[in-house]
Design a protein around this nucleic acid. Structure first.
Length: 482
RNA sequence: GGCCAAUUGGUCAAGCGGUCAAGACGACGCCCUCUCACGGCGUAAACCCGGGUUCGAUUCCCGGAUUGGUCACCA
């Protein structure tokens, strides 16, 4: 049978990295087997619906390369793929009624007030379990209530004795007492299905073979089994993904600042790196490789190698991985992407290609660029003590001497290419019997005003050009002469 | 609190009864070097705690501890 998985997000905002990973795994499981990956929009909660959120979903899937085979915009014969549209056709109510016929569900007319009285507080958490009050309503009472237009929901009728076991590919068999199974709402009083119900109905109708979802649904999974059984449907393969947490081992929240894909992109991360990194949180390939393109992941992915325990989202490692992608990137593409960050700092007419190349192996994320190249634009204020460097054996005195020696040489020098400058300066170095750094350190300091730079002295001068380089060196001499 | 799950270095993780317990990030050190980075080499750093089972447990079983998830007319 052809593998079919789906990603079924709610349009409530940006795509959380946990959701992104779930979507990724669903995609990989399907594609690894040559199956189909579908997109279904679960918008049954009109209150939480966020304008534009559906577009974010499309865009994110597009950018990350998780291309769906079927979805609202790609009819594969299982449509509609938006739950609110499916709802209009009345399918959920129809299936719920089928369950009522079978005695697996029942109408509930309980008021919010009565429900409220069922709540209790436990460790600051409000918890509630329904008492099957309306299960015992007579046929006549139900008819009367319905006729009177009293608002109702439809609840699942779960047994109170025995146990239910369901199987998860990652977590194995999980058995719970049926007494733990609450009579969850299937159809809300507004006529919309709940997530739990719509999910089961739609997954079945759309022929989903592997249900890939977050581990937070693990505890409600037994109820799903009961639903499938009640319908007499085949239970799909469940693949629950371990949680992704923040550094404090708490569920990633919007507050984390890096909880969504778009947050990360705004922070200067590359899509490929984010996808690659997130894939490795909760899954490990065979062997020691860590850098994978999406295509390579499709080939390698085996959900049996997923882990059960939650993983901390480690920004430090993501940054490292991003740096790896930066270094591996095509130079021209890197230049294009880095350009806005460079131009935010450099307004002079300098060779931006060269500057981009300098910075390529030195940054992890794009915003790092500014701190590396700001000195090209203007020479920062710096202290004369910066000329002292014990390893280069240079002091303020020796630096002054070197700069004075070198100034006329550089004034004469016509070829301001990196190679040309280096060659000429090395002549001076050799002539004097100095160490290279002894001469280069003061020059680089004068020309950049910084402790560290993304390039050597001569390379910087090449970009700065003769005039500016000389100005800065003279300024250095002046500073050291005081 | 009930239920469920998880538990290997700071983090991601390999391991699936016998290993000096992989690898990666990070940290630290060395080399390379016109600074910093890149690159190369290396060091430190872990099986939550008890009981079993077994000739032998990180690995299997049972308890405990800890952490997390869940207990909505949200998904």
């Amino acid at each position: 049978m052809k593998v079919r998985t789906r990603y079924a997000p709610s349009p409530t905002g940006r795509m959380h990295v946990g959701n992104l990973r779930t979507a990724l795994y669903a995609y990989l499981i399907a594609k690894h087997e040559g199956g189909d990956f579908l997109l279904r929009i679960e918008d049954t909660d009109q209150e939480r619906y966020v304008e534009g959120a559906t577009e974010i979903i499309y865009r994110t899937l597009q950018e990350t390369g998780l291309i769906h085979d079927e979805g609202p915009d790609k009819d594969g014969g299982c449509g509609p793929y938006v739950q609110s549209e499916r709802q209009k056709s009345g399918i959920y109510l129809q299936y719920a009624k089928e369950l009522i016929e079978k005695g697996e569900a029942y109408y509930c007319f309980c008021t919010p007030e009565r429900l409220e009285s069922l709540r209790r507080e436990e460790n600051g958490e409000t918890i509630m379990s329904y008492d099957k009050h309306c299960l015992h309503l007579s046929k006549e009472e139900i008819e009367a209530n319905l006729k009177a237009g009293i608002p109702y929901v439809i609840r699942q009728n779960n047994p109170t004795e025995g146990t239910t076991t369901f199987h998860d590919e990652i977590y194995g068999d999980i058995t719970v007492d049926n007494s733990e199974l609450d009579d969850m709402v299937l159809i809300k009083s507004d006529g919309y299905p709940t997530y739990n119900f719509a999910n089961v109905v739609d997954d079945h109708l759309m022929g989903i073979t592997h249900v890939v979802r977050g581990n937070e649904y693990l505890s409600s999974a037994p109820k799903y089994n009961r639903l499938y059984q009640a319908f007499g449907w085949e239970v799909p393969v469940y693949v629950h993904c371990p949680l992704i947490t923040n550094e404090e081992h708490q569920k990633l929240s919007k507050r984390s600042g890096h909880s969504s894909y778009e947050d990360l992109i705004e922070q200067g991360f590359l899509t490929e790196a984010v996808v690659n990194y997130v894939a490795l949180l909760g899954w490990s390939p065979e062997g020691n490789r860590e850098i994978f393109s999406l295509e390579e992941m499709v080939k390698e992915f085996d959900y049996r190698r997923m882990s059960k325990s939650p993983a901390v989202f480690d920004m430090t490692k993501l940054k490292w991985m991003n740096g790896e992608y930066m270094k591996a990137m095509d130079p021209e593409k890197f230049y294009q992407m880095a350009l806005p960050y460079i131009q935010a700092v450099i307004h002079k007419d300098l060779d931006l290609h060269k500057i981009a190349a300098m910075v390529k192996t030195r940054i992890e994320i794009f915003p790092d660029i500014a701190g590396h190249i700001d000195f090209f634009e203007t020479l920062p204020e710096y202290d004369a003590s910066m000329y002292c460097h014990k390893k280069m054996k240079s002091t303020e005195e020796t630096s002054l001497q070197v700069l004075k020696d070198v100034l006329p040489i550089l004034e004469e020098q016509e070829d301001y290419s990196n190679d040309g400058l280096y060659k000429r300066l090395m002549e001076y170095v050799n002539e004097k019997g100095y160490k290279t750094g002894f001469v280069m350190w003061p020059i680089r300091t004068a020309v950049s005003g910084k402790q560290m730079t993304p390039a050597g002295a001569t390379e910087i001068m090449e970009v700065l050009g003769k005039e500016e380089s000389l100005t800065r060196i003279r300024k250095g001499i002046e500073k050291l002469s005081k």
